[in-house]
């Protein structure tokens, strides 16, 4: 019995050790919050939260400096919005094709294609946007620079498509076969089955996919850094340049003196960015939990 007791203690300790290791993700998330706020909050001694968020002027190195990030936030919103308009239909429709229409052979090719697109380093996509797409846009539309909202949105869409496509495919995959068969057996065409049965049944999963895709786009750095043009002004046309949040941080951090107001302001932009994507993720999590299908199929 002594042996059994020892064994129990050992097993108990092993389990708790793994529990501790499993909490590492929460710990890191907590540390991210702590250090963002630690380095970002001091800026609010210089400017108020309202001035920071809604100020239109971003001249962080002037004397006196202006720390208004409205144009930067708008820049992020605009490129994320337009890229979603491109990425959502492409992502969702390709997922429908892969899971419902494509034959097994085509499927075996398409799935890796989506995965490879997901695996492309963002710096490479940014590079492509810069050296191939920008001159192309400049020539075709006869505009001063090809580094603008349209180009950045297009490249961002390429980053969001794989996320949306693969998550949508998972959601569609989870729709029970009986539903599909029932609809077809009632004389519905394949398209009617897809549009009236399968898509509605997997809607919550598709919503989650779209939200996570947008979240990916809003946080993506290298593409907007290299392709969006970098003008910290509120755009008036889709051919204007913008400077989205990740681009501002990445471009300026290297040149700013350690723990200057500018440095703190960049961390504060990081806070805004973090909170935005955090909310997106929480909403996605909430939707997928709330509408979790009960029974054999799960999301």
């Amino acid at each position: 019995m002594e042996k059994a007791k020892k064994r129990h203690i050992r097993e108990y300790l092993i389990e708790k050790w793994f529990l501790f290791l499993a909490t590492i993700s929460i710990i890191i998330l907590g540390l991210i919050v702590v250090f963002l706020f630690k380095e970002g909050l001091p800026i609010f001694k210089t400017v108020s939260v309202g001035e920071f968020l809604f100020g239109q002027l971003w001249y962080p190195t002037d004397e006196p400096a202006d720390f208004g990030i409205l144009s930067i936030i708008v820049g992020s919103l605009v490129v994320t919005g337009i890229s979603s308009m491109i990425a959502v239909p492409l992502g969702v429709l390709s997922a429908i094709y892969i899971s419902e229409i494509a034959g097994p052979g085509v499927k075996e090719i398409l799935k890796p294609v989506v995965e490879l697109l997901a695996a492309l380093p963002s710096v490479v996509i940014g590079f492509f946007g810069m050296v191939v797409m920008a001159p192309f846009f400049q020539k075709v539309f006869n505009i001063p620079t090809g580094l603008n909202i349209v180009n950045a949105s297009l490249m961002l869409a390429m980053m969001a498509v794989p996320t949306i496509s693969s998550l949508t495919e998972d959601a569609i995959h989870a729709v029970r076969r009986e539903l599909r068969e029932a609809s077809l057996a009632l004389g519905a065409t394949q398209w009617e089955t897809i549009s009236r049965v399968i898509v509605p049944a997997s809607l919550s999963g598709i919503c989650t996919a779209i939200i996570l895709g947008m979240s990916r786009a809003i946080g993506e750095t290298m593409v907007v850094l290299m392709v969006a043009g970098g003008a910290a002004t509120i755009p008036e046309s889709i051919f204007d340049s913008v400077r989205p949040m990740p681009a501002s941080i990445a471009a300026e951090m290297a040149e700013t003196p350690f723990r200057s107001d500018h440095y703190h302001a960049l961390f504060a932009i990081g806070i805004v960015l973090f909170i935005t994507t955090f909310l997106f993720n929480l909403i996605a999590d909430y939707i997928s939990q709330k509408y979790k299908q009960v029974g054999t199929a799960t999301l």
Partner: peptide, 23 residues
């Protein structure tokens, strides 16, 4: 824990950069 993991997966890469810089 799952919320932690999901949100960690969603943290923008540039924010990871800031975190790494700070910590």
């Amino acid at each position: 824990i799952r919320i932690g993991i999901n949100n960690l997966a969603g943290v923008p890469s540039v924010v990871f950069g800031l975190f790494g810089l700070g910590l």
